[in-house]
């Protein structure tokens, strides 16, 4: 298990470096640069050159890239080119907000999605199944930014005062206020994922219920409850774990649209502002977070597979002893 984890982590590190290199190149290929923030309108070429030299942006691209890789390896993220605040400080606050929002949405919606999917499969062809099937399609096909805007409109204008439609209350502002401010962004963030999870689990549950071993269990008089919860679900959850892992990555990576619609001060909002300002260090750091969370989520899924699917475990052991 440990060597499996180390091997997977090594692979993840390589992917992360590739992602960072691409972000670096794309930022530099984009027109404009961070110097515009320092220079007013109509700057003289001399002034521009001075600022570029000060920021280290006049050096050849490969030299900048080496510095960049070096700073990543030493975990020195530098400071914001626009405000001068250390990037680590800037990111830390926003990470916490994004993490909390993402985890709340993830836990609640995954639970709802799995429950809906499992119940639909158990009641296949009946009313509840139809409700879940229609409901999940609606949930996954409604664009989140549109839903977000509608919710802002409803709770901001038509029924004001029920739930805050914008902004993020910290814990210091009161637990109740804080939790109330999470409701709408978390609802909007997770609803489509719940639809996907419900559908995936329903399909694999139905497949699992058709398996030979389920028929054999029934032939020995096992009750439907045991069949569903102990046998079919245990088998059906394996393909669903992949989907859930991907969701986890997108949830805690920073939801760009949701955070901007609801004005949540998370990483997603930081990504937008830093890219618009060509604030290279901040943009890079935010990207590291987003890509990193995705890789960690994938890694967690692989390790989970290892834990729940004995066939994968056996395959790995077989390969490593050869």
């Amino acid at each position: 298990m440990l060597s499996y984890a180390i091997r997977r982590a090594g692979g993840a590190a390589v992917v992360l470096l590739l992602v960072l290199t691409m972000v670096f190149l794309m930022l530099h290929a984009a027109p404009g640069g961070p110097e515009t923030a320092y220079l007013g309108n109509n700057p003289t070429p001399e002034k521009r050159a001075a600022v570029l030299a000060q920021l280290g942006l006049d050096r050849p691209l490969w030299a900048q890239y080496l510095t960049f890789v070096g700073s990543i390896l030493t975990l020195d993220l530098g400071s914001s080119l626009t405000t001068g605040t250390p990037v680590s400080e800037l990111l830390a606050d926003r990470m916490l907000v994004t993490l909390e929002l993402g985890l709340v949405a993830f836990v609640v919606w995954t639970a709802i999605g799995m429950l809906a999917g499992a119940l639909a499969a158990a009641r296949r062809g009946r009313a509840l199944d139809a409700v879940v099937r229609v409901g999940s399609v609606v949930a996954l096909s409604v664009p989140s930014f549109w839903l977000g805007l509608i919710l802002v409109l409803v709770f901001g204008l038509y029924v004001p005062g029920v739930l805050p439609s914008s902004g993020w209350a910290t814990w210091d502002e009161g637990v109740g206020e804080h939790l109330r401010s999470i409701v709408l962004p978390a609802f909007t963030l997770g609803i489509s994922a719940a639809g996907v999870i419900a559908r995936t689990l329903r399909t694999s549950m139905i497949e699992a219920l058709d398996a030979d071993h389920v028929t054999f269990g029934r032939s020995l008089g096992l009750n439907e409850r045991t069949i569903l919860s102990r046998i079919a679900l245990r088998n059906a959850v394996i393909p669903t774990v992949t989907v859930i892992g991907m969701m986890l990555g997108t949830f805690i990576g920073g939801a760009v649209l949701i955070e901007n619609v609801f004005n949540v001060p998370g990483v997603g909002q930081l990504v937008v502002s830093s890219f618009l300002a060509h604030d290279y260090p901040v943009a890079i750091a935010a990207t590291v977070w987003t890509a990193g969370t995705f890789l960690v989520a994938t890694l967690v899924v692989d390790l989970l597979y290892f834990a729940i699917d004995p066939r994968i475990r056996a395959q790995f052991l077989e390969r490593s002893t050869r």
């Binding site: 398996a211 030979d212 071993h213 028929t215 054999f216 032939s219 046998i231 245990r234 088998n235 394996i238 729940i308 699917d309 004995p310 066939r311």
Partner: peptide, 11 residues
């Protein structure tokens, strides 16, 4: 059953 290989849950 007819297919013993698949008549027990694999996990």
């Amino acid at each position: 059953p007819q297919r013993p290989m698949t008549s027990l849950s694999p996990v």
